[in-house]
């Protein structure tokens, strides 16, 4: 029982990272129906920006995170303007292939300039404290990651439900043309979406750096794919869905590798994707007429 509880804790902190990445996926998909394949790589760029601002500029963790979020927000907007915007009216496959291109581009440009050698986040950036509660080991990093993921989600939910921009986002998601006719600038809304989504990815990148210490140019691929599955699991386009999907994926994977084998872990992720899409394509929380962002 204790072991099971520990596995749950392990799974939740892994899930928090998936959830943060999944939020960005789900937002972009909700607005322009694009699987932003490069989302995981934006996370990687965020991790590097965080790394350099800590190790070169000597900034503290909060500054580093803000710095990474701002730069990736800009990067996200630029990518959207250059690569995705010209394709807004083409097929979704064309858009996906472009996204794969952007993903490869970010990975190998980073590889080219920064080499494949992994970089190590300085441990001093966020010293570890362990707490033992009833035999369960929980670290301050676990708490930090889970809490900040939840806070970011609440802020996001607030923006979407309560602000004018959020209202416009929901409108664009529901019917782009009608929104345009109502005087909403679709371009601006798409840019805002990419900026927010990329900033969240950057936050996740810095957290991965803090949590696992080592980062490398290809680190975004697998978490990116898993987070996408998490977004689909929760119902793509739904903010709370991405959150729950992320946590579920994390717990599921940890349990599978804890009680089964690591080998099946990755198979489970894609198995879940196929099952969900075959049985309930709208995901766990998707209603066919539900509002999407």
């Amino acid at each position: 029982m204790l072991e099971f509880m520990q596995q749950l804790v392990n799974g939740l902190s892994l899930g928090a990272i998936y959830a943060l990445i999944a939020l960005g996926y789900t937002m972009v998909y909700g607005i322009i129906m694009l699987i932003n394949f490069a989302h995981g790589d934006i996370m990687m760029v965020g991790a590097y920006v965080g790394f350099f601002s800590i190790s070169i500029l000597g900034s503290n963790i909060v500054v580093a995170m803000i710095f990474a979020m701002v730069s990736c927000a800009l990067l996200g907007v630029v990518i959207e303007k250059v690569a995705y915007k010209p394709l807004r009216n083409s097929t979704r496959i064309a858009a996906l292939i472009t996204a794969i291109g952007v993903s490869l581009f970010l990975e190998y440009i980073t590889l080219y300039f920064l080499t494949a050698q992994q970089r190590v986040y300085p441990d001093s950036a966020f010293p570890l404290h362990k707490y033992e509660v009833l035999g369960l080991v929980i670290s301050n990093k676990d708490i930090f990651i889970i809490v900040s993921a939840v806070i970011l989600m609440i802020i996001l939910q607030y923006i979407i439900k309560r602000t004018k921009t959020g209202k416009a986002m929901r409108a664009v998601s529901l019917d782009r043309e009608a929104a345009m006719l109502m005087g909403i600038s679709v371009d601006r809304i798409v840019s805002v979406t990419f900026a927010i989504g990329s900033a969240l990815a950057a936050a996740a990148g810095v957290m991965i750096g803090l949590y696992y210490n080592a980062i490398n140019p290809l680190m975004g691929i697998i978490p990116g794919l898993k987070a996408f599955v998490a977004a689909v699991l929760g119902g793509i386009g739904l903010i709370p869905g991405a959150m729950v999907g992320g946590f579920l994926m994390g717990v599921l994977e940890t349990l599978v590798s804890g009680y089964g084998s690591s080998m099946y872990r990755d198979a489970v992720a894609f198995g879940v994707l196929i099952l969900i899409l075959l049985i309930k394509p709208t995901g766990l929380f998707g209603k066919n007429t539900g509002e999407k962002v």
Binding site: Q6, Q7, N10, I222, E253, S257, G258, D266
Partner: peptide
């Protein structure tokens, strides 16, 4: 006997099992 894959960053599942 447990295994992981190159590129993994998350080992706590099997480690918790080994601890047992």
């Amino acid at each position: 006997v447990e295994g992981f894959m190159n590129g993994d960053k998350e080992f706590r599942g099997p480690l918790t099992k080994i601890r047992g």
